[in-house]
Every structure is written in C-alpha cells, then in structure tokens.
Nucleic acid binder design. Structure first.
Length: 583
RNA sequence: GCGCCCGUAGCUCAGCUGGAUAGAGCACCAGACUUCGAAUCUGGGGGUCGGAGGUUCAACUCCUUCCGGGCGCACCA
C-alpha cells in the first residue's frame, strides 16, 4: 500500500475529470506530476506539483489551477488541503489512512512494500564476475553487495530477476594462471622455485592446487612442454579458483542463479556466429583505428583489423574484435555473452562493474543495442574503489607479493552484516572509506548495530508484553484489530507516517538502482524508534506496554510490530540479518 | 588531449531523477539509566552547496565554461 502512488492516481483521475468537464484541455502531459512527502512536515503529508507543471500548458495561473485541483481532492481521507508557495497543493491525511497502512503492513508481513512496477519483466543483473585467478578483494565485495541488493530490490519491485556471474575462463589470463600453478606444482615436487617471476600470480593461494596436482599426476608434467599440461592445469586451476570465489561469496551471503562460462561461448561457436551476424548487417568491417591521443604509446601499430561499428550506437571509436594474432578480443566474447542474454529473453540488463571499467560501458551498450536490434538496453552501475583503513591508517592494498587484503579476511574480521551495511552506506559511484576498527565497534558510531539494535528492541518489547500482559496475543490479526486511534502522541503518529513511506522508498530505490536509499531509510526509521523508546523513560505513559490498558498496549504493539516488520524487510533487501537479541 | 564519475558543516556523507527555510552521523559542549534493553536518547553552535554564467514559476539537482580530485583511453580482462 503506497499512499503516494494512490494519491497520484487520484490526482490523475481528478485531472481527467476536469478535462472531461471542460475545465482543462484534453491530453495534457501528466508525466511530470508527482506526489512526494514535503521536506517540512508542517506542510502536511503529501505534496504535489501538479498545478505548477500544468499551468502553462493549461493556460491557467498555477494558484488558480491549484485551487481547482484541490477542490476535487477533498475526501474523507484528506483532512486538510492547503495551497502554498507558487502553487503547491499540500495534503494532510486523516489519521485513519495511516492506521490502514499499518494494518496492511501487519497483514502483508514481509510482502509489505513490495511493488508491481516491474510487471514481471525479465531483468538480468550481472555482478561480481571476478576473474577466476585468485580470491576476491574488497573492491569485488562492493560490487557483489551492490549487485545483490539491486537484484533484491528489483525482485521486490515485481521484476523477474536473474542474478548472473560471468566467468572469464578464456583468454590469456587463465593461461597465466595455469603457468603459475605449474610453478607451484614443481615446487610441491621439491623443486626450488625461488621468487615468483613477474607476470605470474605470486599468491600463496595457488600452493594447494600445485600440491594437489603433484599428488594427482606425479612428476610427469614437471619437464614436459607447456602444450602437454596447459589445458589440464588451467582447468584444474579455474575449478579451484571458482570454488574459492564461491566460498568467498557464500561467506558474504551473495548468491547467483547463473554462472556463465566465457569459454562455453567460443566452444559452441557463439562468438563467431554473432560476428557473422553483425557482419551481415554491416556492423563489422576491416579498418584502421586512429592512434590514441595525448599519450605516447611506442607499441602502437597501425594495422588493418576487424572492427565493430560501435560508433553507430554512440561510442567514440569503433572497437577491435580480433587481436593482432587473429584470436578474438574479450570484447568479442562479451558481445556474444550479452547476445545470449537477449536470446534468453532479457530486454533489460544491468551490469555492476568496477569504476576501472567505466571506459568499457559505451561500447557494451552499443553492442547490446546492436545484437538486439534496439530491443534491449544495458545499464551499467559503476562502483568506485574501496579504501581500507584501520584506526584511520590506510591498509596496504598493493597486489604484488600477494600483499593485498582479501574480502574473506575482512568478512572474517568484521562479519558479513557489517561489510554489507557499510558498503551500502554510500551511493555506488562515490568512493568508500572502510575502517576495519570502526565497524566492529559496537556503538552508535556504527550504523549497522544501530539499526539491528532497533529491531532487537522491538522483539524485546514483544517478549516483554507476553510476560507482563499474560495471555496477550501478538498475532498480526489481533494487532491489526487494535484500536489504532489510540496512537495519539505526535511521536507515534510520526513513526506511523514514516512506516507509510517504506513502499515508496523501496520502489524508488529499485527504479533508481540505488540500494543505499534503503539503508538510509532504515537508519532514519531506527532513529525515530529509538527516540520514541526513550520518550517512554521521561513519560512512562508513553511506554509501549501499559499494564492498565490492554487496548492501548495492543495499539502500540501493533506499531512496534510494524516497525519490526519494516526493519526486517529492509535489512533482508540489503542482505543484513535482523537479530532478535543482541546481548 | 578526449570520455565517464566526484566536489555539500571542521571530518565522513545524505539530499527522494527540478520543489518550499539544504539535512544526518562523527567531533565539540551541556544533560537523561531504582523505570518496556543506555549498543539508546534530549538540547546547542556550525554552510558563498568548488567558481562564474545560463535554462524557468522553482536549481545542490539540468546546460555551458573554468578550477580541483578519481578512473579509463587499440591488439589485458
């Protein structure tokens, strides 16, 4: 039950009625008409800009138009209609409206706030897609958390979401991985390998794989030419790395529906097929690229090559599909990959990427439009870097010598809840400072605990209620039947109104693909709840449990339960647990 | 040089796709536990929203242009 959507419908209805009565011209553009909570609460509960955005087109001064619209919005649900400023229409809603929202939330439980704006449309959300060459680092973790939360939000908003991971198991990087493992294999056989040569992966995490391969195959590959062992070692290494990554993801509570292998594309001829198709449509050609400007590149080689005409779809230059050795570029596979998304029925694709992939977005969007003939769109959400701190001191993140902090280390140290919550305390395109010392601090300095504590307090009140009030029934049916009109204190009304905003918050967060809005809302809700709680210290009459009045207690417990449900729901959306106790 | 992102209180950041007098947290100061959980709350000061133009009823938000920072810029992924 989204009261803002509801009133947008009413306003739209009022406007068409006015058009029918000749008060307004037909066919006005209503797309800019919105209902939103006013920043200043003294302006009521819902504010609309309808009169201001329509005034010019309607040829009526905004205040006069507002007057007319306002007259049609009067109903038992609306306690007060006021005009303000240049033509705002401010609505103050009757108390029973918010009481109905609370009843709806109790009845709907975890479904409260869910939306149908997705209309069941299929959306593919791709996130993480870390190369299977080592454990995940903290930056991957951010993408994982953001992608997972976006997927959850979209699912809650009525989309048919598929969560996907693209395994980059083709190309030269995994060959390097295989060579690195081969070195560890020789090491496991007793050979002294010394310093890991530059260009190979130095991390210790490859040692167990080398040992396993030594056990499995003995020394027969130690001196053998690369062609004899490369495939075996590569496959074993990729399998082991993916197991490692899946474990890292599991530790963070991240899940995917599909793990899609890049190698399967070329194995099935999908890449060549896509290129052929694009070629047939004149989107692939042999040509030359201008050398990059503003930087000296001694390796630059002016040559004729196979190019994708991405400039036809807004890219800055056309992009190569084959390397100088004739093999396909990563981009070529990625086109084929996104083509399979389209073939699998996804007209909406979202890729959550690291900011260092920003330059890659335009060509990918061009590719998606090309392979779908304009039917599909790709959105990219870029995650900026994460900087790790401990007590304000930067933690070294250099990749050489395996000296970087892995995601797993951080999760093991501070817990999945803290990592996820902190990752969503920033919008994804802002850099994130993450202080390991602060997030395990169990204080109000730490917003994770602050919100979870509010949830635990709700549960605590409910437990207390059954003890103090005896046979009190906390079932949502009973609570919904309570006389909610007894929630008369301004703090209680205010909390009730904040609950009513939840459906709007999650819907807008889904539409904007900005899960951090959920996080901030939860913080605000927790804050108001804590404030009301403490008010009960100064004014015992305001405590949730009142031994002298079962009906008052019931009403307040209904409110507490509503708060609990929304916090639990919001935390679920961002993948954070909602503990019942935190002692 | 070009493209994308960022610039808001001393610090870290929100600001609801253009709405009304720009908000939190931290830090600082002063208060609240015989009482539903003090991991909490109440009050206080603090701003040329990087600068300058423009668009309009209305700009932190959109456009242009500077300044300052980040990322990227064939044949890596």
């Amino acid at each position: 039950m989204n009261i803002f959507n509801e009133f947008e419908r009413r306003i739209t209805a009022a406007l068409s009625a006015m058009a029918a009565d000749g008060e307004l011209p037909e066919g006005l553009d209503l797309s800019r008409v919105v209902c939103e909570p006013p920043r200043d609460r003294s302006h009521g509960d819902i504010s609309t800009n309808a009169a201001m955005v329509l005034a010019k087109e309607a040829g009526i001064p905004p205040r006069a138009l507002a007057e007319k619209i306002a007259a049609r919005l009067r109903s038992p649900d609306v306690e007060k209609v006021e005009l303000a400023g240049p033509g705002f229409i401010n609505l103050s809603l009757a108390p029973h409206v918010f009481e109905e929202v609370l009843r709806a939330s109790l009845a709907q439980g975890a479904r409260f706030g869910a939306s149908t704006i997705g209309e069941g449309a299929k959306v593919n959300v791709e996130y993480v897609s870390a190369n299977p060459t080592g454990p995940m680092h903290v930056g991957h973790g951010r993408g994982a958390v953001v992608g997972d939360a976006i997927a959850s939000l979209l699912a809650f908003a009525g989309y048919a979401v598929t969560r996907e991971y693209y395994i980059n198991d083709a190309g030269s990087q995994v060959d390097v991985l295989a060579r690195s493992v081969h070195l560890r294999y020789r090491e496991a056989l007793g050979e002294r390998v010394g310093e890991i040569p530059a260009g190979l992966y130095p991390g210790d995490y490859l040692k167990p794989i080398g040992e396993k391969l030594a056990q499995l195959h003995g020394p027969k590959f130690a001196k053998a030419p690369e062609a004899h062992w490369l495939t075996v070692f590569r496959d074993a290494a990729i399998e082991a790395m993916m197991a490692l990554i899946r474990a890292d993801l599991a530790a963070l509570g991240i899940r995917h529906d599909v793990f899609f292998s890049e190698r399967s594309l070329s194995a099935e001829g999908k890449v060549e097929a896509v290129i052929a198709e694009l070629e047939a449509r004149g989107l692939v050609y042999q040509g030359r690229l201008p050398p990059p400007k503003g930087q000296v590149d001694s390796d630059w080689e002016d040559r004729e090559q196979m190019l994708f005409r991405s400039t036809a779809y807004g890219d800055d230059v056309d992009r190569p599909l084959r390397k100088s050795d004739g093999s396909l570029t990563y981009f070529a596979s990625d086109i084929a990959y996104h083509a399979t998304k389209f073939q699998r029925g996804f007209n909406q694709m979202i890729d959550v990427l690291g900011a260092d992939h920003g330059g890659y977005v335009k060509r990918m969007q061009a590719a998606v439009r090309a392979v779908s003939a304009g039917a599909a769109t790709l959105e990219a959400r870029l995650c900026q870097l994460v900087r790790l701190f401990r007590h304000g001191e930067p933690v070294k993140m250099s990749k050489r010598a395996g000296d970087f902090v892995t995601l797993r280390e951080v999760v093991d140290e501070v817990g999945a809840d803290a990592v996820r919550f902190m990752m969503l305390m920033r919008k994804n395109d802002a850099p994130l400072d993450f202080d390991l010392a602060k997030v395990i601090e169990q204080s109000k300095d730490n917003p994770v605990f602050y919100v979870q504590y509010a949830h635990a307090r709700c549960e605590s009140v409910r437990r207390q209620a059954t003890e103090v009030l005896g046979e009190f029934d906390l079932g949502s049916g009973t609570l919904a039947a309570a006389d909610l009109n007894l929630l008369a204190d301004p703090s209680e009304r205010s909390l009730l109104k904040l609950l009513a905003q939840y459906p709007r918050v999650v819907e807008q967060a889904a539409q904007a693909r900005e899960p951090h809005r959920t996080t901030f809302y939860l913080y605000e809700l927790a804050s108001e709840f804590h404030a009301l709680w403490n008010k009960g210290k100064d004014f015992p009459d305001l405590r949730f449990i009142n031994q002298n009045s079962t009906s008052l207690s019931a009403a307040r417990l209904a409110l507490v339960t509503g708060v609990r449900n929304v916090i639990a729901s919001g935390l679920t959306l961002i993948g954070v647990s909602a503990p019942e106790e935190m002692r």
